[in-house]
């Protein structure tokens, strides 16, 4: 028996909207730790790792570990039927091939049930080692989204270079080149506008713009984004959800042949 109750359906809606275009089908794993998902995109270039911690739910009952295969587009369709301030309850009985989403309006005067078919998904779970990254940038999530969108209109790849002074995003395309430098800055009115650099060594890596743009669909989840880079690792683009957990996107770099 699984029963998870979350007061803000809006959060789950934003989570689904941020990953449904990157990953088609995925297993949601439910354990004492929380409700989690790990999945690669179809070309195995990017990986999504989501954790919604059990203690972030209003009610969390998961009698034993369970993995539920879902089509994320269909799940997003059902969640779009909830209002952001509805309470959502996710329910599944042991051995059932369906999951139920129940939405309750804040005044309890509207209660809706949506039952969705589960699917068998044969997916490989990857071990992601805890790593020390050579460079970590924390910056405004909306600024990062703007930069990815702007550079994506000019070139297919973005070079991200971190130095002690700041982070530089560069691209090159048929029409020309573009460079954006965000200097480290903590003297800001709103803390989410700060740009913080933690760097052991300068790092410069090249990534496909379209994946970075896809990751920024998670921008509504967090004020700041954390970008972690090392030469021998995929980049991690992380959106932390206050008290609930995180959405992490891993992207393998492009390497000079």
């Amino acid at each position: 028996m699984l029963e998870l109750r979350l007061t803000q359906a809006g959060l789950l809606k934003k989570v689904l909207e941020s990953i449904k275009d990157l990953v088609t089908d995925a297993n949601f794993d439910c354990s004492a730790t929380g409700f989690s998902l790990q999945a690669m995109d179809s070309s195995h270039v990017a990986l999504v790792a989501l954790l919604l911690r059990s203690d972030g739910f209003e009610h969390y009952r998961c009698d034993h570990n369970i993995s539920m295969g879902m089509n994320l587009g269909n799940m997003a369709k059902m969640l779009r039927c909830a209002s952001d301030d509805d309470t959502v309850t996710i329910k599944a009985d042991d051995g059932s091939d369906t999951v139920t989403f129940m939405f309750e309006s804040p005044s309890q005067d509207k209660i809706s049930d949506y039952e969705m078919k589960l699917m068998d998904i044969d997916s490989e779970h990857l071990g992601i080692p805890e790593a020390e990254y050579q460079a970590i940038v924390r910056m405004s999530a909306s600024e990062f989204a703007r930069i990815c969108k702007d550079l994506g209109t000019i070139g297919d790849t973005v070079i991200i270079s971190v130095t002690k002074e700041g982070v530089q995003f560069s691209t090159k395309g048929d029409i020309g080149t573009a460079n954006i430098i965000c200097r480290k800055n903590t003297a800001v009115d709103k803390k989410e506008e700060a740009t913080v650099i933690e760097m052991a060594e300068p790092v410069s890596l090249t990534f496909a713009s379209r994946y970075l743009i896809a990751f920024t669909k998670a921008t509504p989840l967090a004020g700041q984004v954390t970008i972690s880079m090392s030469y021998d690792m995929p980049i991690v683009v992380e959106y932390k959800m206050e008290t609930m957990g995180y959405m992490r996107f891993y992207l393998a770099p492009k390497i000079e042949e």
């Binding site: 070309s43 270039v45 990986l47 779970h125 990857l126 891993y250 492009k254």
Partner: peptide, 14 residues
């Protein structure tokens, strides 16, 4: 030209 690496080049299955 650039070679696109894959996630599996870095992370292994459990």
């Amino acid at each position: 030209s650039c070679l696109q690496k894959k996630i599996l080049d870095y992370f292994e299955g459990d």
